[in-house]
Design a protein around this nucleic acid. Structure first.
Length: 550
RNA sequence: GGCCCCAUCGUCUAGCCCGGUCUAGGACACCACCCUUUCACGGUGGGGACAGGGGUUCGAAUCCCCUUGGGGUCACCA
C-alpha cells in the first residue's frame, strides 16, 4: 500500500514486443502526472489472456519505454527500473488474490456462476441484433439456480464463468477530462469477471490491482471510457475507494483510420503488386510465407520480415511502434515532445519542450477532448529542428550509434575518419539520424558497382555546351594534381576552373562531378563528397563516367 | 442500431469554464519570391477555420437547444 496522499499512476499494457505510439503517449502522460507531483509511476502487465501467449519477447516494449526516457518506480525489473512492494506486477501471477475476492463476491450473492456455452450466447446476440435491439445478458436463469445444482455442475467439470451481478440503476462516470456522463439503468449488464479458464477478466483484475497497488489516478485511452462504469460498480461491491479517472483522446492516422501494424502490410502489398513481383526478394521472407501473405489480406508479416522486405524494396514503412521511429532515426526527446502535443498543449503558443518541462507542466485540465490525427510530417520537421540545432559532435556521435545498430554493413565500409567527414557534412541537411545512410548508398558501393541515374546523366553529363563530360575531361588532370585530398584543396582546384570555364557558375561543374561520382544529383556538398570518397575512388568514378557517357 | 462522448485553418492546437480586448493567435503543411554547387536548411510575404440552424444577450468562437458530422462502446480481448 502506498502512503496516503501520494499520487500513484500506472501504465498497464498487455504483454507485447513493441510499444504502440498511443500506448507510449499514455505512459508518458501517466509518468508526467505522477512524477510532476512527487508521486509514483508504476507498470503492470495485463497478461490474463492465455491466447496472447507471452514469450520472452513479450516484454520488448520495456526497452522502448526506456528509450523514450520514461522510467517506472514499480513494476517488472528492467535496467534499474521496477521492483517494488506491491508485486507481483504480472497479473498471471496474482490469480490467488483475484480468487479470494471472487469468492467473497459469490458468497455475498454479488456474483454468480453461469454455465452458458459460447454458442448459446452467440445465438442470443445474433437474435438480438436481428431484432434490432441491444443485446444484454439475461442472468435470471443462472441466478435462480439452486446452490446444490451449481455445485453439482461444477463438480461435474462443466465449464463455468463467474458474472458480476450488476446493481440496477443509472451509473454516473466522473472524468477529469471529459466531465460527467450518466449511463442509463440497464446499460451495463452482468459481465463476466472470471473466465472459464480460471483467469479474471480485465475488468476484475484492473479493479483489484489498482486498489491493492494504491493507484490514485487512472489515465488511459478513451476507448475505456464506458468500461469505467463496470469498474465503478465493482469497486462499490468490494468496498474499494475510487481512483480519479482521465480518459485520453485517441490518436489516428491522417486519414482517420486506426493506426495499426496492418498499415505496414498495406504499403508492402501495394508495392509488391505495383511492381508485379512474383518472388520474394532474396533473404526477406520465406517462399511459403510469401505465398500465404499474398493470398490472404489478413495475414501479417512479423516485425523483422516487414522490415527486411521494406529495406529490399526500398520503401518507407509507416511508423506505428516506438521502435519504428527509432529505426527511422527520430530522436526520443522529439518523439515524446510530439506525442505530448497530440492531446495536450501547454498553451501560450509553446510547442517545443522536453520531458522535464512536461512533467512540470502537465495537467489534466489542458488535455484536449478530441481525437488527434498523427501528422508524421510535422514530427519530421520537429526532428529536423532538433538535429540541426544540436552541436556537431553530438550529432556525429548519435549518427554513429544509430548506424552501428541499424546500418552495420554501411559502417563497416567506411573508416572512422570517413564516417566523421560524412556525418559532419550531413548534419545540417539531416532531418533524421537515418537520412545520411539512406541518401549516400553510393559511398559504400564499389566504383564500378553503383548505378548511374539515366536522367541525371543525360542532363548533367551529355547535354550542355560544353557538356558535363567535357568539363570532367578538363578537370581530371587538375584533380590528379591536388596534393592533399581534402575539401579545401579540392575547392581551390575546382573553383578557379569554374570561374574561367563556366562563367563562375560552380553548378555547371559541380553537378557533372556529382553525377559522375554518386550516380545521381543529390549528395553532400561536392567538395566534401570527393574528400570522403578519396582520391582513388573519385578519379576512378570520373573515368568511368567519361568512358560511359563521353 | 442502442448507449456515451466530441466538434476552431488541410493537420496539431491557443482562445471557450469567468461572453466584449478575436477584423480568431501559433506551429506543421501549402503557394510566391529571395538565398543557393545538388538536396535540404534559412529569410520575406501570402491564402487558409469558429460545421449548419435556432435561441439568450446591447454584444457569442465563447451560454442553451436542435440538426449534421466524427469518435468510442456494446466479448469468457485488453
Amino acid at each position: 500500500m502506498s502512503t496516503a496522499g501520494t499520487i500513484v499512476t500506472r501504465f498497464a499494457p498487455s504483454p507485447s514486443g513493441h510499444l504502440h505510439v498511443g500506448g507510449a503517449r499514455t505512459a508518458l502522460f501517466c509518468w508526467a502526472y505522477a512524477k510532476g507531483r512527487g508521486g509514483k509511476f508504476l507498470l503492470r502487465i495485463e497478461d490474463t489472456d492465455q491466447k496472447r501467449s507471452s514469450d520472452a519477447a513479450s516484454l520488448g516494449f520495456l526497452k522502448d519505454l526506456k528509450w523514450l526516457g520514461i522510467d517506472w518506480d514499480e513494476g517488472p525489473a528492467f535496467e534499474g527500473c521496477g521492483g517494488g512492494p506491491n508485486g507481483p506486477y504480472f497479473q498471471s501471477e496474482r490469480v490467488d488474490t483475484y480468487n479470494r475476492y471472487l469468492t467473497q463476491l459469490v458468497d455475498a450473492g454479488k456474483a454468480y456462476y453461469a454455465f452458458d456455452t459460447a454458442e448459446e450466447l452467440e445465438r442470443k446476440r445474433a437474435a438480438a441484433k436481428a431484432a434490432g435491439v441491444a443485446y444484454r445478458y439475461d442472468g435470471s436463469e443462472s441466478i435462480a439456480r439452486p446452490k446444490v445444482e451449481v455445485e453439482r455442475l461444477l463438480a461435474e467439470g462443466r465449464p463455468a464463468v463467474i458474472r458480476f451481478r450488476t446493481p440496477v440503476g443509472p451509473i454516473t462516470i466522473k472524468d477529469e477530462i471529459l466531465g460527467e456522463a450518466t449511463l442509463p439503468a440497464g446499460e451495463v449488464d452482468d459481465f463476466v469477471i472470471r473466465k472459464a479458464d480460471g483467469f479474471p477478466t480485465y475488468h476484475f483484475a484492473v479493479v483489484i490491482d489498482d486498489e491493492l497497488m494504491g493507484v490514485t489516478h487512472v489515465l488511459r485511452a478513451q476507448e475505456h471510457f464506458n468500461n469505467t462504469a463496470k469498474h465503478m460498480v465493482l469497486q462499490d461491491a468490494l468496498g474499494f475507494r475510487r481512483p480519479t479517472y482521465g480518459h485520453l483522446p485517441l490518436i489516428f492516422n491522417p486519414d482517420g483510420s486506426k493506426m495499426s501494424k496492418r498499415d505496414k502490410d498495406k504499403v508492402l502489398r501495394k508495392t509488391v503488386t505495383e511492381r508485379k513481383l512474383a518472388e520474394p526478394p532474396a533473404g526477406t521472407v520465406g517462399a511459403e510465407r510469401w505465398k500465404a501473405w499474398l493470398a490472404d489480406k489478413n495475414t501479417q508479416l512479423d516485425y523483422e520480415e516487414a522490415n527486411r522486405l521494406a529495406t529490399a524494396l526500398d520503401v518507407p514503412l509507416p511508423e506505428i511502434n516506438v521502435d519504428d521511429f527509432r529505426r527511422s532515426g527520430y530522436l526520443p526527446e522529439v518523439v515524446c515532445n510530439f506525442l505530448a502535443l497530440n492531446g495536450w498543449s501547454p498553451g501560450e503558443n509553446r510547442e517545443k519542450f522536453d520531458n522535464a518541462f512536461l512533467r512540470g507542466a502537465f495537467d489534466l485540465s489542458r488535455v484536449v477532448k478530441t481525437p488527434a490525427k498523427f501528422d508524421r510530417v510535422k514530427l519530421l520537421s520537429f526532428d529536423c529542428d532538433a538535429i540541426t540545432s544540436m552541436p556537431r559532435e553530438r550529432f556525429v556521435a548519435l549518427a554513429r550509434a544509430h548506424g552501428e545498430v541499424f546500418h552495420p554493413e554501411f559502417m563497416r565500409k567506411l573508416t572512422p575518419s570517413q564516417f566523421e567527414a560524412l556525418a559532419g557534412a550531413s548534419h545540417e541537411r539531416s532531418k533524421t539520424l537515418d537520412d545520411m545512410f539512406r541518401g549516400n548508398r553510393f559511398l559504400v558501393l564499389g566504383d564500378e558497382a553503383f548505378a548511374y541515374d539515366a536522367k541525371a546523366a543525360e542532363k548533367n553529363l551529355k547535354t550542355g555546351e560544353p557538356s558535363g563530360v567535357a568539363h570532367l575531361r578538363a578537370l581530371r588532370p587538375l584533380l590528379a594534381e591536388v596534393k592533399a585530398w581534402e575539401a579545401g584543396a579540392l575547392e581551390a582546384a575546382i573553383k578557379p576552373y569554374a570561374d574561367a570555364n563556366a562563367g563562375g557558375q560552380l553548378g555547371k561543374v559541380a553537378q557533372p562531378l556529382r553525377v559522375a561520382v554518386s550516380g545521381g544529383t543529390v549528395s553532400p556538398p561536392i567538395f566534401d563528397t570527393l574528400a570522403i570518397l578519396g582520391r582513388e575512388s573519385s578519379l576512378a568514378r570520373i573515368d568511368r563516367a567519361v568512358k560511359t557517357f563521353g
